[in-house]
């Protein structure tokens, strides 16, 4: 039986060497087709990115560079029809509102994360806080803006600080969540080594745990700040619509880059739209540099 099988198979192998090249078949074609679809998806996401950034740069660069550095220093024209610079007060307003928000939300958020990871653990209170942090992260930015209007602006008037409060409320859950994740990555052995040397819990956290988690925490905070700097809705009801420079964080109405883009986008005047593109370029550059610095920190310390 075995010999007949061999002899029967023999002519096949002797007549030609086996063809090991993969033949085109429907399964391979389908796989290639799906890869093509994936590439189309990549194109679908690349086109808007390139289109938006291309327009922002091409329409904004002329505006920003005309009579440099007027765009960054001049007041905003009161008559929006006028062509020309600048956005000085808006840049100062954005920096004030975002900086104030960072000063409020970063320490509070990191301390909250320290509580959750180092003290609370899986206790009922810590689990409640974690759950509510997730809830707070989902609050739409315009709701946060209205809330700050009701509890702050109605009593204290428009100011950059009102914007800081609204942005801080948006940043807080982001800072808590990202910082807690970074603290979780610190090896337990580091804490035990510190306790073995006689350090107290607070000293261990301040000198061992936080420094070990610092790069990750800083990067998370920078990403949160970058997001906050571009927010518009929370500032609408808190910051006001000043056209002149106001370097005061607490008093008097201020303005911001995002608010200026929103207002000018709705106007049909060449000058106003030009300033909107200039402000957009400035804001995008600010957000991108913060994001890139955050990525570099992560890469450097990984």
């Amino acid at each position: 039986m075995a010999t007949t099988a061999v002899t029967a198979a023999a002519p096949l192998t002797t007549s030609s060497t086996p063809d090991l090249r993969s033949r085109p078949n429907w399964r391979a074609t389908k796989s290639a087709l799906m890869t093509g679809v994936m590439i189309l998806c990549v194109a679908a996401i690349a086109i808007p990115l390139v289109a938006v950034l291309g327009t922002v740069v091409s329409r904004g660069i002329g505006e920003v560079l005309r009579g440099f550095p007027d765009f960054f220093t001049s007041d905003i024209p009161v008559v929006s029809r006028r062509v020309g610079p600048g956005m000085g007060p808006a840049i100062v307003g954005t920096v004030l509102a975002t900086g104030g928000a960072a000063l409020l939300a970063v320490p509070l958020g990191i301390l909250g994360a320290v509580y959750l990871n180092e003290y609370g653990g899986r206790s009922a209170f810590a689990r409640t806080v974690r759950f509510m942090t997730a809830v707070m992260a989902g609050v739409p930015s315009i709701v946060m803006g209205l809330f700050i209007y009701l509890v702050w602006t109605m009593r204290m008037g428009y100011s950059a600080f009102g914007g800081s409060l609204a942005l801080a409320c948006l940043m807080l859950p982001v800072v808590i969540t990202s910082s807690e994740q970074m603290l979780k990555l610190v090896p337990q052995t580091l804490r035990e080594a510190s306790y073995a040397l006689g350090a107290s819990k607070s000293r261990t956290i301040a000198t061992v745990v936080l420094p070990a988690a610092l790069p990750g925490i800083v990067s998370g905070c920078l990403l949160a700040i970058a997001r906050a700097a571009g927010e518009t809705a929370p500032l609408m009801f808190a910051v006001g619509a000043a056209t002149r420079l106001n370097p005061n964080l607490i008093f008097e109405a201020n303005t911001a880059l995002s608010l200026q883009i929103f207002e000018n986008a709705n106007l049909a005047f060449e000058g106003a739209q030009g300033r909107a593109w200039g402000a957009a370029l400035t804001l995008v550059a600010l957000a991108f540099s913060l994001t890139l610095v955050a990525r570099l920190i992560v890469k450097r310390f990984k």
Binding site: Y115, M132, M136, V139, I176, S200, S202
Partner: peptide, 28 residues
């Protein structure tokens, strides 16, 4: 006591989230 105080400050910061959410719900 400094150690305990630090713990309470951290707990207070965490509780801030609850405070803000409650304030939002009540005002709105």
């Amino acid at each position: 006591s400094a150690d305990a105080a630090f713990g309470w400050v951290a707990r207070g910061s965490a509780a801030f989230v609850l405070l803000v959410l409650a304030a939002i719900a009540l005002t709105m």
